[in-house]
Deep mutational scan, measured.
Amino acid sequence: NQESVVAAVLIPINTALTVGMMTTRVVSPTGIPAEDIPRLISMQVNQVVPMGTTLMPDMVKGYAP
């Protein structure tokens, strides 16, 4: 099972992602793959992401799977 990126904290809208904001977990449905965390650093979320929420591609500005 592939791990997906999950919010480790509440991430406010338009916040640039940092390593500490993200964790990984096997979830269903799957979100952004864990191995993409290095690509996500400094990208901004386009909505509020509650802690424990799986990051989906459409939540991150400029992210393309």
Rank of each mutant, 00 (worst) to 15 (best):
Gly62Ala: 15
Asn14Arg: 14
Glu35Arg: 03
Asn1Thr: 14
Met56Ile: 11
Met43Asn: 07
Gly20Ser: 15
Val45Gly: 00
Tyr63Gln: 10
Val45Trp: 01
Glu35Thr: 09
Ser28Cys: 13
Thr24Ser: 10
Leu55Glu: 01
Thr18Tyr: 05
Leu40Val: 10
Gln47Trp: 04
Ala34Trp: 04
Val60Asp: 01
Val48Trp: 09
Pro12Cys: 04
Met51Tyr: 12
Ile32Leu: 05
Pro50Val: 07
Gly52Lys: 06
Ala34Thr: 09
Glu3Met: 05
Asp58Ala: 12
Ile41Glu: 12
Thr15Arg: 07
Tyr63Cys: 04
Arg25Ile: 04
Gly20Glu: 14
Ala34Met: 06
Ala34Phe: 04
Ile41Arg: 12
Val27Thr: 13
Gly31Phe: 02
Ala16Asn: 07
Val6Met: 04
Met59Leu: 11
Ser4Thr: 07
Pro57Asn: 08
Glu3Pro: 04
Ser28Tyr: 08
Ala64Gln: 07
Met22Arg: 01
Ile13Leu: 10
Ser42Ile: 03
Lys61Arg: 10
Gln47Ile: 05
Gly52Tyr: 08
Thr23Cys: 03
Asn14Leu: 10
Asp58Val: 11
Val9Arg: 12
Val27Met: 13
Ala7Gln: 00
Leu17Arg: 01
Leu17Met: 11
Val5Pro: 01
Glu3Asn: 03
Pro50Cys: 05
Ser42Cys: 05
Met43Ser: 09
Val5Gln: 00
Ala16Ser: 07
Thr23Val: 10
Gln2His: 10
Pro50His: 10
Glu35Gln: 06
Gln2Ala: 13
Glu3Val: 04
Val19Glu: 14
Val48Phe: 15
Arg25Met: 10
Val49Cys: 04
Pro33Arg: 07
Glu35Asn: 06
Val19Phe: 14
Val60Met: 05
Glu35Gly: 09
Arg39Thr: 08
Glu3Trp: 03
Gln44Lys: 09
Thr23Tyr: 10
Lys61Gln: 11
Gln44Ile: 10
Pro33Trp: 09
Gln44Gly: 06
Pro38Gln: 13
Gly31Lys: 02
Pro12His: 08
Pro50Asn: 14
Pro65Arg: 10
Thr54Met: 06
Pro65Ala: 10
Ser4Cys: 03
Thr30Ala: 13
Val9Cys: 03
Ile32Pro: 01
Thr24Gly: 12
Asn1Trp: 03
Asn14Ser: 07
Gly20Val: 08
Asn14Val: 03
Ala7Asn: 01
Ile13Glu: 14
Gln47Asn: 13
Lys61Leu: 08
Val27His: 07
Ser42Asn: 12
Pro38Val: 08
Pro50Gln: 13
Gln47Glu: 11
Met51Asp: 08
Ala16Glu: 12
Val5Thr: 12
Arg39Phe: 07
Ile41Lys: 08
Met51Arg: 14
Glu3Phe: 04
Val26His: 09
Val9Tyr: 10
Ile41Asp: 04
Ile37Pro: 01
Met56Pro: 00
Pro38Phe: 05
Leu55Gly: 01
Met22Glu: 02
Thr23Arg: 05
Val27Ala: 13
Asn14Glu: 08
Ile11Lys: 00
Gly20Cys: 04
Pro29Cys: 05
Ala8Gln: 09
Val45Pro: 02
Glu35Leu: 07
Val45Tyr: 00
Met56Glu: 05
Val48Tyr: 08
Ala7Phe: 02
Gly52Asp: 13
Val48Ile: 15
Asn46Arg: 11
Ser42Val: 05
Ala64Cys: 06
Ile13Val: 15
Leu10Pro: 12
Ala64Thr: 13
Asn46Phe: 07
Asn1Lys: 02
Glu3Gln: 04
Ala7His: 01
Tyr63Phe: 11
Ile13Tyr: 06
Gly20His: 15
Val49Arg: 02
Ala64Glu: 12
Thr24Val: 05
Pro29Phe: 05
Ile11Pro: 00
Pro29Met: 04
Thr53Asn: 15
Asn14Ile: 02
Gln2Met: 11
Leu55Ile: 15
Asp36Glu: 12
Thr15Met: 09
Pro57Phe: 12
Leu17Gly: 01
Ile32Tyr: 03
Leu17Gln: 00
Met43His: 14
Gln47Ala: 06
Val9Pro: 00
Gln2Ser: 11
Leu10Asn: 07
Gly20Tyr: 14
Met59Val: 11
Val27Ile: 08
Gly62Phe: 06
Ile41His: 06
Ile37Ser: 08
Ala64Leu: 08
Val6Gly: 02
Pro38Ser: 08
Thr54Phe: 03
Val5Leu: 07
Leu17Thr: 01
Val9Leu: 08
Met59Tyr: 14
Ala34Ser: 08
Ile32Glu: 00
Gln44Tyr: 10
Asp36Val: 11
Met59Thr: 11
Ile37Tyr: 11
Val19Cys: 07
Gln2Arg: 02
Asn14Thr: 13
Asn1Met: 03
Met51Gly: 06
